[in-house]
Nucleic acid binder design. Structure first.
Length: 137
DNA sequence: GCCAACGTTGGC
DNA sequence: GCCAACGTTGGC
């Protein structure tokens, strides 16, 4: 099993939309590096969902429930989508600032390469973010 | 709203 | 194949 972090502009599609919908097609990715990561996802992989822009926090955990397929929003076969299923919401969202000041998380793509929208996490990084998200208040 | 970082495009 | 110009993203 692998671990990932995906970014979304909450005005386009937010974590709360995923909570409501139960699952969604993660489409519209138009960056080769992000696309390559989508192609590496396998069913059951854990995916943290981050809001860019004004919220800048990880809100919870989703799971890959359908591996990559042609992005339905384009006929261009370069681009793929996956389907994600809601898994669990954090007690407290984990902010970008918290992650930046955490030693374990110094090398995550979110900090190192702020424009990449789909990135892998190590198990240590994944578990640290989940730990922060499930801590009390 | 500004700007840094980065990706893409196109002229040569 | 290089690189300048341009567009987009996202943090501040």
């Amino acid at each position: 099993m692998s671990f990932w972090l995906v970014k979304s502009d909450p005005e386009t599609y937010s974590w709360f939309d995923l909570v409501r919908d139960g699952s969604t097609v993660w489409d519209g990715v138009r960056n080769y590096q992000a696309r390559n990561n989508l192609r590496l996802m396998t069913a059951g992989d854990k995916v943290l969902v981050y809001h860019s822009n004004f919220e800048k926090s990880v809100f919870g955990i989703a799971e890959v429930n359908r591996e990559f397929f042609q992005d339905p929003t384009t006929d261009d076969s370069n681009w793929v989508a996956v389907s994600l299923r809601y898994s669990e919401s954090f007690n407290v969202p984990v902010s970008l600032q918290q992650m930046k000041s955490n030693e374990i998380l110094q090398n995550i793509g979110l900090i190192k390469q702020s424009r990449l929208s789909v990135m892998p996490l190590t198990v240590e990084e994944y578990e640290e973010i989940v730990r922060l998200g499930n801590s009390k208040g």
